[in-house]
Simulated assay, not measured.
Amino acid sequence: MQSKAMALKNKVQSIVVTTMWRKNAFLVSSSRTFATGYDDNRILKSPSSLVSLDFPDVWNYSSSTNCTESSTHKLASDHTARVIDGKQVSEEIISNVATEVTRMKKTIGEVPGLGVILVGERKDSLTYVRNKITACEEAGIKFKLAEFSDNCTEDEVCDAIMRFNADPSFHGILVQLPLPQHLNEEKILNVVKLEKDVDGFHPVNMGNLAMRGREPLFVPCTPKGCVELLIRYGVEIMGKKAVVIGRSNIVGLPASLLLQRHHATVTIVTALTPNPEEITRDADILISGVGVPNMVRGSWVKPGAVVVDVGTYPIEDKSCEQGYRLIGDVCYEEASRVASLITPVPGGVGPMTVAMLLYNTLESATRKYNFV
């Protein structure tokens, strides 16, 4: 009797495992098709729904007493990585956004609106805001800037955000970060209405990004831009080892969450991580966003890896129009001799952040007006 019960139990388990495997295989196939076989009419090539990427984890380990040592393939010394041109991709996306904005205006007489809060006169923040204004003008998006001095109060900033919250012609609100130290960043960002949080930093948006089966209203712009570049350059994310250097709320944390939603195996390197170069050398995809110039050397990069440099650090240079130039976390000259693909600084992730901001603002307006 007991043997019959055991046999029945094994049979049921076999059916369940087989069903799960088939479902898993189907969803993996569907996910890959979604990521690469996109509709040309869509603005972005990345999936429009993160839930569409979800499928159940099926752990399938095979044990063996024998193992073989794999050799590390060394690239030729004259190798140069292919450059990921974020500027070109961002221009394509902004052009597509502009087309949709024009169609929205002709169809329903409305255009997306973006309100931006700028506190202080940091050179890099001024440059970023200037770029956003230019991009909004190109795309036909309404733009309004609320500027404050370095010594402004939290109440002044919060009042400006609340005015944008109440104005139905503004569908997105962005607080340019970082803020001066005397201002409570968390308190200020929490004032932004969830449905206008086009930066994706609201705790609800971040929480929904972290949880499978949940859909954030907005994904933070910089990580979203990084993944869009990977997809457009044909980089396989699913099943790959990804290392994210830094765990900031702006880049590191959401980048790691988004990569996990795309089924990468993700490791985060922090300032307290011992021997970080040993971890990064194992990465198929390496994303760094800590703002430490040239921290990531060529020896940190696995041969053939994809390197995405989010870090920006201003270096005084009187020959440049702004009086300074930007360099990244990655020592570009060294890493480009090892990596297969690499983003430059500037011209890599930066323009994509702006493009994703415009895309999120368009999405917000589309959602409000039920515009199809």
Score class of each variant (00 low, 15 high):
residue 201 F to V: 07
residue 288 S to T: 14
residue 48 S to K: 06
residue 371 F to S: 14
residue 150 D to P: 02
residue 334 E to A: 04
residue 204 V to F: 13
residue 261 R to E: 06
residue 137 E to S: 15
residue 70 S to F: 13
residue 76 A to V: 03
residue 202 H to L: 09
residue 217 L to S: 15
residue 238 M to Y: 11
residue 92 E to A: 02
residue 254 P to A: 02
residue 301 V to M: 08
residue 321 E to A: 14
residue 91 E to G: 07
residue 31 S to D: 10
residue 162 M to N: 15
residue 54 D to Y: 07
residue 167 D to C: 12
residue 196 K to P: 14
residue 157 V to A: 04
residue 273 T to F: 15
residue 351 P to I: 00
residue 241 K to E: 10
residue 25 A to T: 11
residue 123 K to D: 15
residue 294 N to L: 04
residue 246 G to A: 05
residue 330 V to P: 04
residue 259 L to R: 04
residue 273 T to C: 13
residue 52 S to R: 08
residue 119 V to W: 03
residue 287 I to W: 12
residue 206 M to Y: 10
residue 135 A to I: 00
residue 89 V to E: 12
residue 355 A to H: 02
residue 84 I to S: 05
residue 170 F to P: 06
residue 55 F to T: 00
residue 200 G to P: 03
residue 262 H to E: 07
residue 274 P to L: 09
residue 353 T to H: 08
residue 353 T to C: 09
residue 220 P to T: 04
residue 144 K to E: 12
residue 248 S to I: 00
residue 314 P to T: 06
residue 103 R to M: 08
residue 356 M to H: 07
residue 12 V to H: 10
residue 281 R to F: 15
residue 228 E to N: 05
residue 108 I to Q: 03
residue 130 R to V: 04
residue 313 Y to T: 15
residue 92 E to L: 01
residue 172 G to V: 05
residue 74 K to D: 15
residue 87 K to D: 15
residue 31 S to G: 09
residue 42 R to K: 12
residue 257 L to T: 01
residue 118 L to P: 01
residue 75 L to Q: 11
residue 165 N to C: 13
residue 51 V to W: 03
residue 161 I to V: 09
residue 335 A to S: 06
residue 33 T to K: 06
residue 321 E to S: 15
residue 328 G to N: 03
residue 181 Q to D: 11
residue 125 S to F: 11
residue 133 I to V: 14
residue 142 K to M: 06
residue 148 F to W: 06
residue 233 Y to H: 09
residue 24 N to F: 09
residue 16 V to I: 13
residue 141 I to V: 12
residue 124 D to W: 00
residue 208 N to M: 06
residue 260 Q to R: 14
residue 328 G to F: 02
residue 75 L to D: 07
residue 101 V to F: 07
residue 126 L to M: 12
residue 41 N to D: 04
residue 183 L to H: 05
residue 256 S to M: 01
residue 369 Y to N: 12
residue 298 G to T: 02
residue 45 K to P: 00
residue 149 S to C: 02
residue 30 S to Y: 15
residue 329 D to R: 01
residue 95 S to F: 03
residue 276 P to Q: 10
residue 5 A to W: 13
residue 78 D to C: 05
residue 296 V to D: 00
residue 55 F to I: 00
residue 174 L to F: 06
residue 150 D to W: 08
residue 152 C to I: 02
residue 188 I to E: 00
residue 333 E to C: 01
